[in-house]
Amino acid sequence: MTRSLSTLVASAVALLLLATLPLWLGNTYYINVASQILYWAVFALGLNVLVGWAGLTSLGHAALFAVSGYTAAILVTAGHSHLVGAVAAIAMTVATAAVFAVLALRATGIGFLMITLALGQILWGIAYRWASLTNGDNGINFKTRPQPFGLDLTSAPAFYYLALLVFLAAVASMLVFVRSPLGAALRGTRDQPRRMTALGYNVWLIRFLAFLLSGFWTAVAGLLFLYYNQFISPQIAALQTSAEALLMVISGGTATILGPIAGAAIVVIMKNVVSAYVERWNMVLGIIFVLIISFMPEGLVPGVRRLIGVAWRGMRPAKAVITVRGEASS
């Protein structure tokens, strides 16, 4: 009871802080950094569906991210409306995710990783080489951000609120998904795939659906990326982006909801804010990852939770022991 109450209070405070962020953060630049954290977090949450709950590590998600951005950029530049661009981008990405899934789900573990890596590299190659469509290395400039319901998203706070809404929707969908029978079944396929098969579950189908969900949120994040940067080029489809997103998920804590968000925040803040002060920010980021892996192999969020738990019990040893015994005897 107290635990759920404190979670409720913490969520309310976090929501309030996020909603008022442009007011207390002041400088436009920092609001933009916050927007970046939000869309990277959406990407990491999408990837986490596979990495965390399905136990399938994908190294090809940057390609899905880029398919979404490129589809919208190409369509809107060709004169279609933003709505058409956005809907087509998501549909196209989910379809690509389906193709990825059909090919990659023939394997798990390292095999899955290698297939997704190869598929990702193929799409990167297409973005790079098919210059008549993607403008190759020079990329596509995306002239204006969309104006949903006539709202102008040009300013930093306006874009931040769009990113926040999308982000909250992503978090909500994850909460629902984790608690749903499908979410439970997915975790089952991760931990005991053969038992799940024996119980009559279609393991392949469950993983396939998880891939589509992951692809959907990756597509949404890719759109936000395009709207934010107003530019897309093959670099974003490259392996480095996939690896970075994977680092966000793993360092924050797989199979949690807060983990990928924390991971996205760490990476974005390191890349953009700390790099302004510390020349060797890459090294600092590396050290942070090493520390996380050494002391909290389960990831930052579960790790901190565990350490707080240890500290909490350390402060009240007697009482804790009694409660445990009491529970055991009853």
């Binding site: 630049y29 990329g139 953009n272």
Partner: peptide, 10 residues
Amino acid sequence: PAGAKTKAQE
């Protein structure tokens, strides 16, 4: 490119 955009904003 994305890094360039952020640094330009900075």
